[in-house]
Simulated scan of single mutants.
Amino acid sequence: MASVPVSHLILFIASLVIAAGVVGTITTGVDRVSAAVEDAGIDATEQLRTDVTVISDASAGVYNTSNHNVTLLIKNTGTQRLHPDGSDLDIVFDGAYVPPGAIEGQLVSAGDGAAWDRGDVLRLTIDVTQLEGTENGLESGTDHRVYLTVNGDEELFQFRVE
């Protein structure tokens, strides 16, 4: 008769051990999901705060035929502070990624020059001779596309070499 309470006690202890393991596993999973949601929220906030606008005029001749450079004026219209040299930008020129060594950024209008703040304008110069297929510059009468991204914000600038 004493065997029934002993077997019930063993089953009760086993169920407590299993429940403790399940709770520990679920708690760890919930913590990881919570951290991932928080990180995603921070990234989304950064993306929403970042906005740039190309203010160059495509018909004004952004391509310099003598030194084979494309010069764009880009305004920071978001609230996110960016690097004053344009190193935050990812640039694709006519479908080819532009390496950091082929670009040069200089703030045209800035307070202290330590950051590319809201309202500041960056003069971005792309040396097209460093890009594959354009070692001799851009041909006259051709259309070109510059695709800029920074923190999820995307801008497209199209121009024609005359």
Rank of each mutant, 00 (worst) to 15 (best):
G101T: 13
I103F: 13
Q106E: 07
T134R: 00
L107E: 00
L124R: 12
Q106S: 12
R118K: 06
T129F: 05
D112M: 02
G137C: 07
T125V: 15
N136G: 14
E139P: 00
V108Y: 11
G133L: 04
L138M: 02
D117Q: 11
D127L: 06
G111H: 02
T142C: 00
S109H: 05
L124P: 04
G105E: 12
D127A: 11
V108I: 13
A115D: 01
L107S: 03
D143K: 11
G137S: 06
A110P: 01
Q130P: 07
R123L: 05
G111P: 06
G141P: 07
G113C: 08
G113S: 12
L107Q: 05
D112N: 09
Q130M: 05
W116T: 08
A110F: 11
P100R: 15
G133P: 04
H144Y: 03
G137Y: 07
R145H: 13
V128Q: 02
G105H: 14
D112G: 00
G111F: 04
G101A: 14
D143M: 09
G119I: 01
L131S: 06
N136F: 13
H144L: 08
G113L: 11
N136P: 12
A115L: 09
G119K: 00
G141N: 14
I126Y: 05
G111A: 07
P100D: 15
G101S: 15
G119Y: 01
V121S: 03
W116Y: 06
R123A: 07
G133Q: 04
I103K: 14
E139Y: 02
E104P: 06
T125L: 10
Q106A: 12
A115R: 12
I103S: 15
L124W: 08
G141A: 12
N136Y: 12
A115M: 09
R118A: 06
P99F: 02
D127Q: 14
I126E: 05
G119L: 00
N136I: 12
L122G: 14
R118V: 00
E132P: 11
R118Y: 04
G113E: 09
D112E: 03
S140K: 15
S109N: 11
S109E: 09
G137A: 08
D117P: 03
V128P: 01
G113W: 14
A102G: 07
I126P: 05
D112C: 01
G113M: 11
V128T: 01
G141C: 08
D127C: 06
L107V: 06
L124Y: 09
D117R: 11
G101E: 14
Q130E: 02
E139V: 08
A114C: 04
L122E: 12
G113P: 10
E135C: 07
A110T: 14
P100N: 15
L131Y: 05
V121P: 03
L122A: 13
G105N: 15
T134M: 02
V121Y: 04
E104R: 15
E135R: 12
Q130R: 14
V128K: 02
T134F: 10
W116I: 10
T129S: 07
D120K: 09
E104M: 14
V128N: 01
G113A: 12
V128D: 01
G101V: 10
R145Y: 13
Q130L: 03
G141H: 10
G113R: 15
W116N: 02
P99E: 04
T129E: 02
T125P: 04
E104H: 15
G111W: 00
G119F: 01
V121W: 05
R123N: 09
L131I: 08
T134I: 03
D120V: 07
S109M: 07
G137N: 04
